[in-house]
Design a protein around this nucleic acid. Sequence first.
DNA 1: TAGTATCCGGAGCGTCGCTCCGTTTTGTCA
DNA 2: TGACAAAACGGAGCGACGCTCCGGATACTA
Lengths: 199, 199
Amino acid sequence: MAAEGPVGGSPPSRSKRADAQRNRETVLTAAAEVFVTSGVDAPIRQIAARAGVGMATIYRHFPTRADLVTAVYEHQIEACAEAGPSLLASADSPFDALRQWIDLFVDFLVTKHGLADALQSDSDRFAALHAYFLDRLLPVCTQLLDAAVAAGDIRPGTQPYELMRGIGNLCVGRDNDPRYDPRRLIALLLQGLERPRTP
Amino acid sequence: MAAEGPVGGSPPSRSKRADAQRNRETVLTAAAEVFVTSGVDAPIRQIAARAGVGMATIYRHFPTRADLVTAVYEHQIEACAEAGPSLLASADSPFDALRQWIDLFVDFLVTKHGLADALQSDSDRFAALHAYFLDRLLPVCTQLLDAAVAAGDIRPGTQPYELMRGIGNLCVGRDNDPRYDPRRLIALLLQGLERPRTP
DNA sequence: TAGTATCCGGAGCGTCGCTCCGTTTTGTCA
DNA sequence: TGACAAAACGGAGCGACGCTCCGGATACTA
């Protein structure tokens, strides 16, 4: 549907020179490592230093921070997107598929330091990241939600966009706080979505 | 219970010199104005310029950004805290009181640009703000929640801290997006909290 | 009015995002 | 192979920001 690459990153194969491709990979792995320890807000200088590369090289390959983040997590986002339909086929019910898919999504978010924060950031430094998530994941969520409604598992009226942003929001903030587990609240939310068992 | 002033702000009356007190007020109103347009993340320089004051003056009165934010919103936080018990007395049920109180809390959060973001910020630049909210509001929420559980309105087991942070989290992000209204999700969450009507 | 504790202001330092341009590398073609 | 142009590189440099430091101004006191 969209162009081949993610948001604005340069296509992985169109590039002519070999050193450019090599550097692209180097930057990508360095960024992945730095993101783990310093979050997706890590200074570009730090990533450049780790990659043994100038800052301009990073900006050349990934004009926006969102492009870099997207490229780093592209595979996992894709996997999450592809899990939707297959869960729908394998789960006991559409609602269960939705639940399991949301579990996947939450697992992805909470293991990436500061990713949820970036996604909902009201600065638009990450606007492109937000857009990419939406482009890729919103249709999946819509399909699951519609299926659950059609099966009578949940009440109708919930907008997929709102649900996804809500879930993302619940994953925002300090990690590793034993007093706060977004999964519990999301379970509560899904409980509220469930249709009363009186047809 | 806690010390008289908010987090770390200087006490409003203990100050000796008149110009210091005058400047404190000037900074406070300037900050309030700037927060409306630029959010609680506005540059200190901007607030200082608006107040016609040096930056050091602001840092002297409010060593941390959290102190400044807290001082600006102190009255409203206080009002929200005090609304708890009176709602419990006036509402139809404890659960209704909880609902109305959460409405108040959400209204407060969504009308302050970036405040919810700051509250849950992963950086600890706002740790003191987080602490102040908790100190002041968590007991109120706990009381309302306990009352609702005791009345049999909602199922037990929900931790007040988790609920409050969840609500705060749901208010995070871009404002004025017609596709996302945190109130709808919060209603869903409360629905999930409600005890099935089969005692 | 003189003296002093208090408070004020903004220059200055370090960090970060992002760009600009001289230099180096790579692919190509004679 | 050797030369040449296009492509890519790297880091100095600029503006913005958080926060501090210290010489100067100001308000209480006697």
